[in-house]
Design a protein around this nucleic acid. Structure first.
Lengths: 297, 297
DNA sequence: AGACCGCTATCGGAAAATCCGATGACGGCA
DNA sequence: TGCCGTCATCGGATTTTCCGATAGCGGTCT
């Protein structure tokens, strides 16, 4: 999947025509046709349906090209970044964390930030757990907060300090029938409840998925939100439940717009600050030590 | 910037060696050297510092390769998506919106979702405004909620229905000195206040930026969060202020963890549901009409 | 100081990829 | 039936990428 193939396919999708796409790209029609053919072969399904009245994007092609467009957007953004990098320098600390963790850790981090991290611009990036490990390993972020998952050993070259352990709880609208139950709610009982999920293959979403797969069932997924705050807002509007770390729902519970219930079997997750074993500059190591101390229970 | 160039450069960064990277990539050392050279020429600055004890990534190279890695991750993800697309089909409606808008619209959307959008799986994607227009135009999402910005005319091929107008307000910790002021707060007065910003070049962030640039000043940026919920949590922890749409802070205000103040000159933004002028299938058009009616004031 | 080593950059040539122009196949229209 | 526009295919030309050989450099050892 070369950028050129993706660029050509996107042009075809946009122009609804190989010929017009070629004109727009200033290349021959056959070049476009051949590169798109290679892309379709690699994808394993047709991206386009060729009709006499024009090119239609297939349903699968549409999804594929959606992600493809982001890649091309990323390349354009990279060019912009390169331009920017010929200039300004500033002291930054880049921290990655999953959505929903802000509510747990940002209060501790920013409580006295001018004293603990003076003159440092913090860049907070939301990303799922898997990306955080990759980002760290490849030195794209300076530290990351992620779940300690038993299923995954800590990647080589990374060390972590446990910050806290949090309990996963069920959240629902206060008028939801499940809120009447006093005892922990069996996961098996939730199989028929429409549930709002986070991203299924990483972080919290994966933990929630495993609650169901551990008892040989599948959740009835109402919606998937890529952001845990969006997920909470969906639940709070009435239909659907969710399973999230308890501190993530503290505000909404206090406000009375969500109710939490414990689940059975109980499940907790450990959240840790990950960084590379190999130290950064002395200056940045000082920042990271301060960061860890501030965030710890 | 070709895919191969980026892959080779990332391998060099990881292995700290052109020779070892070449081995890992199963190509010759000279091929790696040449492609990385081309990439550095196109970027306009060196990505690596060659030292006898190994390859160091330059500061600028580090930032550049951070974004580059996401692109490669995107391509890998695209391969996964292609694999997935050879299988399952389900009825979905894909909606893009900026972070922070969930709090405004999700309650309305999910209030009676089983009746208004029966059997439909909603995929909610957070994305900045510019991406939403692109995503719509290229049919990657079915509808999008974004700011109507006077600076940008509606892109060709898109139509919109206004959903609501919201006021931009200043938010701060309840004990912040600014909360004592009874009158609207002049933007000029905020120049020396450390401010937490959203992404600067799109959506809310751009609107906030323009408040300052309109009076010939620049904000004192404490931190940049790519997610408005993270931004609110930062403000609520004490240091720093922010300017956000009033409904986005409703929960926190009710909870007493944030306080809002009006700003002068007052600024409002219109939020609309965008879709393509050219209709989708009759089935999906029905979903979109229902969606619009549910979300409108 | 000189020899040796490991690594990267460069170069000429070979191999592979991409592009092009020509043309066949196909469906729609008159 | 003939014509048109568009896409797929093909052989050849052009460009890009890779390779092996080698020069240059800095560090280490004698």
């Amino acid at each position: 999947m070369e950028f050129r193939q993706i660029r050509y396919a996107l042009a075809v999708a946009k122009q609804r025509s190989f010929t017009k796409a070629a004109e727009r790209l200033s290349i021959s029609q056959s070049a476009v046709s051949e590169q798109v053919k290679l892309l379709e072969e690699e994808a394993g399904f047709p991206l386009f349906r060729r009709t006499p009245r024009g090119i239609d994007v297939t349903e699968r092609g549409r999804t594929f090209l959606y992600e493809a467009e982001r890649i091309v957007g990323g390349v354009l953004s990279l060019s912009d970044t390169a331009r920017r990098l010929r200039g300004v320098h500033v002291d930054t600390l880049t921290i990655g964390m999953g959505s929903g963790m802000a509510q747990i850790f940002m209060p501790r981090l920013f409580k006295d930030v001018q004293r603990t991290l003076p003159g440092v611009r913090l860049e907070i990036l939301t990303a799922p757990t898997k990306n955080i490990f990759n980002d760290l390993h490849e030195e794209r972020i300076d530290a990351g907060i992620a779940l300690e998952s038993e299923a995954e050993r800590v990647p080589a070259g990374l060390v972590f300090d446990r910050l806290t352990v949090v309990e996963m709880v069920l959240v629902a609208h206060p008028k939801h029938p499940l809120t009447k139950m006093k005892q922990p709610i069996e996961v098996g009982r939730l199989v028929t409840e429409p549930i709002v999920m986070n991203e299924l293959t990483v972080g919290y979403g994966q933990v929630v998925m495993s609650l169901f797969t551990d008892i040989g069932t599948r959740p009835d997924i109402l919606s998937i939100a890529d952001n845990i705050d969006t997920l909470k807002v969906i639940v709070q509007s009435g239909k659907g439940i969710a399973i999230v770390p308890r501190p993530c729902a503290d505000n909404e519970v206090a406000l009375g717009v969500l109710k939490t219930m414990t689940i059975a079997p109980a499940r907790s997750v450990a959240l840790s600050l990950f960084r590379r074993r190999e130290p950064l500059s002395r200056r940045k190591e000082g920042f990271l030590t301060a960061l860890r101390d501030v965030l710890r229970d």
